[in-house]
């Protein structure tokens, strides 16, 4: 089961890279996120799994789709034609290399086992309080960055989002 989820995660990631259409690519990425969230659930990381589904598969996908819609209508980017040929070789090489290294390491790496008790909230509040400050900082940075980059006159981005976003749905020439 674990292996199946992992293979699904990698497979959808590869699909996201190889698919030509950006929109499908973004959706493949979201599916990969769901697989990753399932892996997290199996590892008892419930909160991380919920976050992965809601934020990465949800919010980031929405961001991607908005950006793709905003920048559509322009010509397609001509990608290298040989990805379908080159990538399998690259990936095969990666797998072989990976297996060789992992076989070498199996059972050879000592480690110190931690032990923890309590609930998620306690750990978050007792051990990683400083992370919360950092999270606030990074959220500030992100919001301010978006505000700074979309400042134009006094109406920031609401105006632009609707204008080009509405049209390309009909003209999605790729289908």
């Amino acid at each position: 089961m674990h292996l199946f989820l992992m293979i699904g995660l990698v497979a959808f990631s590869i699909l996201a890279v190889l698919t030509r259409d950006l929109l499908r690519s973004a959706i493949c990425l979201a599916v990969a996120s769901v697989f990753l969230a399932l892996v997290f659930f199996r590892m008892n990381a419930v909160y991380a799994g919920v976050f992965e589904v809601s934020v990465v598969a949800g919010l980031i996908t929405v961001l991607f789709i908005t950006a793709i819609a905003l920048t559509r209508g322009d010509q397609e980017v001509a990608e290298n034609k040989h990805h379908m040929l080159v990538f399998p070789f690259f990936f095969l090489f990666l797998i072989v290399f990976d297996i060789l290294v992992m076989r070498k390491l199996l059972g050879r790496i000592p480690a110190i086992a931690g032990s923890e008790a309590g609930t998620f909230g306690e750990v978050l509040w007792n051990q990683r309080t400083f992370d919360l400050v950092g999270q606030i900082g990074v959220i500030f940075a992100g919001v301010l960055a978006v505000l700074a980059l979309f400042r134009q006159g006094e109406n920031p981005r609401k105006g632009d989002t609707t204008l080009p976003g509405g049209q390309p749905q009909g003209g999605s020439s790729h289908e």
Partner: peptide
């Protein structure tokens, strides 16, 4: 693997938040 899953989760959540900020900036 190290029986530290609670701490690891809070780290993962922080990484996801950082990721959203980076991706939003990059898309802008």
């Amino acid at each position: 693997a190290r029986n530290n899953i609670l701490a690891a989760q809070s780290l993962a959540i922080t990484v996801i938040v950082v990721d959203v900020a980076v991706i939003a900036t990059a898309l802008a």
